[in-house]
Amino acid sequence: MNASRHPATVSDVMTRKVVAVTLETSFKDIVRTLEQWKVSALPVVADGTRVVGVVSEADLLRKEEHREDDAPPVGAVPDKAAAVTAEQLMTAPAVTVRDDAPVAQAARTMALHRVKRLPVVDADGALQGVVSRGDLLKVFLRTDEDIARDVRGIVMVDLLPEAWQSVGIDVVDGIVTVSGLLADRSLVPVVARMARSVEGVVDVRFDLTSSRV
């Protein structure tokens, strides 16, 4: 990732090469596609690119779980155990994330819905890619030098412009250490919060002296 003082967005880390299925895709074709692409879920699209649902391995396994159940009455609306197309199998509406959303928002959405991957869509709901937990971790691959530059820019320039000579900021393995003389210790929580807002920061630590408490 390139150095930037702006929070990373989903479009910065997502996988753009993505496969999707249509509403009419058959059960067996879905299984084949999952196996071919080595994924556990697929977006379901309508009108070419609009994401309308997601079909997962869990949706497909309903058929195996209910293999010995009685067949549904003729004409009944099929549940997932009797489904044969993506439209019948999928979970809808799909949980998606916008391509311009911050990485942190995507992480919260994954945690909230307990999913490992999210279809990425644009403002019109068209499929742009997929973002996974592994993709979100890419922000932690930024170099210590890039992180330090961003933290100094935010903390030293925006918050503490008068402290250039007395406060130092160093980064090792993503851990930020703020050291030196800080005249007002009440600024410590503010400095910590602003430093943690920088992409790639693992932790923030302080080694400070103070002219007043």
Rank of each mutant, 00 (worst) to 15 (best):
R152G: 15
M90K: 03
P189G: 07
S166C: 04
V120Q: 05
V190S: 09
G174S: 02
E87D: 12
A92I: 00
L136F: 14
L187Q: 11
L112Q: 15
E87T: 04
V151N: 14
L182K: 04
A83Q: 00
V155E: 13
V130F: 12
R98N: 01
Q165R: 04
A94R: 00
V190H: 14
T177Y: 07
G125K: 02
M156P: 06
L181Y: 13
L112M: 09
S132I: 10
Q105S: 11
V121W: 05
P119Y: 11
V151A: 14
R133W: 09
A163Y: 09
D100P: 03
R117T: 02
D150V: 13
V97A: 07
G174P: 02
D158M: 14
L127Y: 10
R98T: 00
V97F: 07
R98V: 01
L137H: 10
D99W: 01
A111R: 11
M156G: 10
S132T: 15
G129L: 06
R142T: 00
V190M: 12
H113N: 15
V178Y: 07
L181T: 14
L159M: 14
A107W: 11
A106V: 08
D122H: 06
L181C: 11
I169R: 06
R108I: 08
V120L: 05
V190R: 15
L118M: 08
A94Y: 01
W164K: 12
V172D: 15
D184T: 04
M156W: 04
R108Q: 11
G180V: 01
M156C: 03
K116H: 08
G125C: 04
V115E: 13
A86Y: 03
D173G: 09
G134N: 05
D124V: 02
F140G: 06
L89S: 00
R185A: 06
A94T: 00
L127H: 10
A107G: 14
L118N: 05
L181W: 12
V130N: 12
L89E: 00
D170L: 08
A83K: 00
L118H: 07
R117F: 01
T85K: 03
Q128Y: 03
A183R: 12
A126V: 01
V95E: 07
R133N: 10
A94P: 00
V97R: 04
K116W: 05
A101C: 09
G180K: 02
A92V: 00
R152K: 15
I169N: 07
S166G: 06
V167L: 08
V103A: 12
L160V: 03
T96N: 10
G125F: 04
D122E: 02
L89G: 00
L182W: 06
V171T: 09
K138R: 15
G168S: 03
L89W: 02
D124I: 02
S166W: 06
R185T: 09
L159C: 08
